[in-house]
Amino acid sequence: MSFHRIILTVNGSTEQVDVPGNMTLLQMLREKLALTGTKNGCAAGECGACTVLMNGEPVNSCMVLAAECNGADIITIEGLARDGQLDVIQKTIIEQGGVQCGFCTPGMLISARALLNRNPHPKEEEIREALVGNLCRCTGYNRIVSAVKAAAEVQ
């Protein structure tokens, strides 16, 4: 099996990684870069726990080949806070009680951040639509939706 040498930016730092053709971006982040905040919940693009930003757009990292990421700019949950300062959506999800077991939370926050980036003042319906790809079994979602609303008001 041949390897691809890729150079990419992850959370602002440049990384060089050798990856086999069948390695997904998710596997690369977790296994090569030890960025374990991004979670593997289904490996089929359905649950959203592995959502990261790729060139500013949210993607299921289990649905992207690592080899495709040469030159890409990736932001994971570990890159959401800056210098120890939480992103506003991280603050509001805490305030609204939108975290229980925490396993969906990283992907959920990335999707929420992406929504707020493209639409700073989303309507409730738009928030719910933007989060359908992030399954949560604990919270029942409404507190997460409230957190996005609250973040939109603050930011």
Binding site: I77, L80, Q90, I93, I94, V99, G102, T105
Partner: peptide, 9 residues
């Protein structure tokens, strides 16, 4: 909760 929102958990 903090560790859960930063991916550190």
């Amino acid at each position: 909760v903090r560790e859960k929102v930063t991916g550190a958990a």
